[in-house]
Amino acid sequence: MGGKVTCTLGEVKNRADFIIYWGGNPAECHPRHFTKYTITQKGKFIPQGRKGRTMITIDIRETPSARAADIALIIKPGKDFELGTTLRALMKGQPVDEARVEEIGLSLDTIKDLVDRMKRAKFGVIFFGMGLSMTRGKHMNSAGILNIAAEMNAFTKFVCMPMRGHGNVTGADVVLRWTTGFPFGVNLSRGYPRFNPGEFSTVDMLVRGDNDATLVLGADPGATMPQPAIDHLTKTPTIVLDPRVTHTSHLARVHFTTAVTGVSAPGTVYRMDEIPFTLRPGLKSPYPTDEEIVNLLIAAVASKPGWRPAPPAQLAGI
């Protein structure tokens, strides 16, 4: 099942001579990535900076990131999984079907060349983005990259890293893991944490209408989710905490305007490589912080009369 072989961004800065960006466009979506962490940086072991590194993009179209690449591979949409699987086979010296490989949009020779370059690297890294994790295949596209990085370590030093989304999504993942054991989609209704993506993940629950109230903090599902989810948010009590009035706020029963974290509210944020940073807000806000509102909500719920059922006779292992 592979695993996850990764590093903090400084390792990439100091050592990576071979960098692949797959399914992401950092030039536009993570604007300081190249200059602060990867390609243009002079690293401890890459004193020549850009000239000491080879950068490759893999995407379905030419983007500003592709224009910065040494090699820009354009593949057909919906073929990331096939390319990942082909790389795994070729790196092990295994045969593949040439005609089906070419449906990816690259020749077998091009892909073999890519494998050779990967093996010749001193330190290779694949950054993978939402072009992979949000298209058909989803987590299996990501699993393909994770497996490639793990298996490449039989030949040379190789790592991978997901390009995380905006806000403190990494921080939420980290905190959920230490308090509940799971990174997202955690159900606490049976008194202990349970995890099952597809059953307890947000979009799936909202589309099926599995919950009878929703609290939204730092997200705007009313703008991004499928219509059945939006209808559900409209029909059931929805509460929003956000510095701005969002699409979801318009569907909600209650909207709290809260201070902007990092600008006027303190906290800790986790970088995409899970390194924590202390936020030092520079401004004051007339609005309360998210934390203050959540604490008030907890106190209000706690003051309601108890309803807690008797502990179950048998803890079913579900």
């Binding site: 096939e82 699987t85 082909t86 795994r88 086979a89 295994q94 045969p95 593949v96 079907d97 089906r100 490989v101 449906e103 990816i104």
Partner: peptide, 8 residues
Amino acid sequence: PLLPSFLY
């Protein structure tokens, strides 16, 4: 449809 990693 089959993956490229399946051989006839």
